[in-house]
Design a protein around this nucleic acid. Structure first.
Lengths: 218, 218
DNA sequence: TTAAATATTTAGACTTACCTAATTTTTTAA
DNA sequence: TTAAAAAATTAGGTAAGTCTAAATATTTAA
């Protein structure tokens, strides 16, 4: 078993590696975890010794298969707990992340196995993020970005890209929720902003290109 | 918020204080937490500074009201999680303790509030131990020890006294479960051992005085 | 292509929670 | 009531994970 700290580094390294495919730099992790770069160097060495990453001095790290596997299990736990909190405890979408950050570090394969069963083996969490299975396999997501949607068509909001806290709060404020149906009314040529209509309330909302490029729809 | 370590000390101090009513000694905690007495002295000083206990040098500690309150909240969380795992995740009685030791340190009042609600505000956990409410109030338990039960009468097993792992395993092995109905067949004069019958399987089991003095029945 | 800017690492320190060994205090029992 | 035993404390150390400041590498841009 690894320390909580190692787990958090591994998770951050995995995420950045997945999104860029490149060696992960000291600074990227320092920024991501809000700690000093010198501390990151220390931890890179340690993770390297433990064969969780391949560390090349002054270059950065790449997660090993072992490191990826651990990261995926933590992500799996995080997303299952989030699903549990939203579905069973009726907590809201944007309240669960912080709590899941704690719960994801509870060690027990049996617990997670049964939690998965209780939730009926969900493939996506309440933010629309895919939940790795117990072998670390991710389900395939066929959603597209709202920014690529056709005007006139209707879509279901299935998730967000980067699920920053502020973005989630923003969505809540303008009345958008996961699972909600929307219709694309029009797209502005010059800045890519989009007017959409909420199917149930008929309310119309303007979304910036930035926002539409961060919303997944089916 | 306090560290995980402080929380574990506080819980141990609270339990021992509740069962003895006396100042809790350095050695008692060292033994309980399986750590060196010198380390306990260090922590006693720190907890004293934080006003979680009253520490008198070479005498030991007593928890303050603040310390008790925190201990009770940890115990509350522990027991609610155990209830959740047995009732909702179908884990068995003796599998949940270790996991609850981790879950009890997750910080979120809202989470626990909703978990309590999901479980329908249980008053006792699967071991029959009382669950403090959110203000730290304990429900009154009217169960008696099996060792004090009358021969010929029937009882429901509601809990165990000291729920040591080995005792739980022992119970499982001989086929006793919480909630099970039993009938007291006879009590040996000379050693206090007891023959009981399980109501559902009709199986008869001999229990030592030690065992019957650690089983709660209604 | 080299000087400046940026990124990374090293060195040395701090805190928490632990340890061992030595000392002191308290308790017990002759 | 005092000597031996037991309990508790002090002193000094260690490992993990962090920090700052200084040194070194790497990248960028003139």
């Amino acid at each position: 078993m690894h320390t909580l700290t190692e787990e958090n580094y591994l998770k951050a390294i995995y995420r950045i590696f997945e999104s860029t495919g490149e060696t992960v730099s000291t600074n990227a992790i320092a920024e991501n975890l809000q700690i000093n770069a010198a501390s990151v160097t220390d931890m890179f060495k340690k993770l390297g010794q433990h064969k969780l990453v391949v560390y090349e001095k002054s270059k950065g790290v790449k997660p090993t298969d072992k490191g990826k596997k651990i990261a995926l299990q933590i992500i799996r736990k995080h997303r299952l707990w989030e699903t549990f909190m939203v579905e069973k405890l009726k907590l809201s979408w944007d309240e669960v992340h912080e709590i899941a950050e704690q719960l994801e570090h509870v060690h027990s394969d049996l617990l997670i196995e049964r939690l998965d069963q209780l939730l009926n083996y969900p493939k996506f969490d309440p933010h629309g993020d895919p939940i790795p299975d117990k072998n670390g396999k991710l389900p395939v997501l066929k959603s597209i970005l709202l920014s690529e949607a056709k005007p006139g068509s209707s879509y279901k909001i299935t998730g967000v890209g980067k699920n920053s806290d502020s973005f989630l709060k923003y969505l809540k404020k303008i009345g958008l929720k996961l699972g909600e149906m929307i219709k694309v009314k029009e797209v502005e040529e010059y800045d890519g902003s989009m007017k959409i209509q909420l199917m149930d309330t008929k309310a119309e909302v303007m979304l910036s290109k930035e926002a539409t490029a961060n919303l997944l729809v089916d």
